[in-house]
């Protein structure tokens, strides 16, 4: 079975969320749980590092859509970084680059939070 793992760590005033493996309808609830825990702790500045994510389906994309509104209402953001091309292509097909900030590099995304 294709595995999925989420690791989180604090970095300045933000949290880096590292995704590993395969994000589909089976594994999306794990990502939902992580977002909901971060929001519960009042952590709204989130950088998602996709470098180790090999696959995403719409169930995974849906998780980012489910939490962005609440996070932005609380003056935070979900910034996306280090996507492999095949993962970026799926985000692109659905028009995400118009609605989310997507960075080549995680540190660039983190700097955007530290400027605020």
């Amino acid at each position: 079975m294709n595995e999925f793992k989420v690791l989180t760590r604090d970095s300045g005033n933000a949290v880096v969320m590292e995704l590993h493996g395969f994000l589909d309808a089976h594994t999306a609830p794990e990502l939902e749980k992580t977002f909901s825990e971060l929001i519960g702790k009042g952590k709204f500045n989130i950088v998602v590092n996709f470098s180790e994510l090999n696959y995403i389906s719409s169930a995974g994309l849906g998780v980012f859509m489910a939490y962005i509104d609440e996070i932005r209402t609380n003056h935070g953001d979900i910034k996306l970084a280090n996507m492999q091309q095949k993962v970026y292509n799926v985000f692109d097909l659905l028009g995400f680059p118009f609605l989310y900030e997507i960075y080549k590099d995680q540190d660039e995304a983190l700097r955007k939070f530290s400027n605020h």
Partner: peptide, 23 residues
């Protein structure tokens, strides 16, 4: 799907069919 609207209602339904047709 209108992604902006979907963000507001927290639902991802319809994205799958949209992707299938694109791909």
């Amino acid at each position: 799907p209108n992604i902006k609207e979907k963000m507001k209602v927290h639902k991802a339904g319809g994205l799958g069919i949209f992707l299938m047709r694109k791909l």
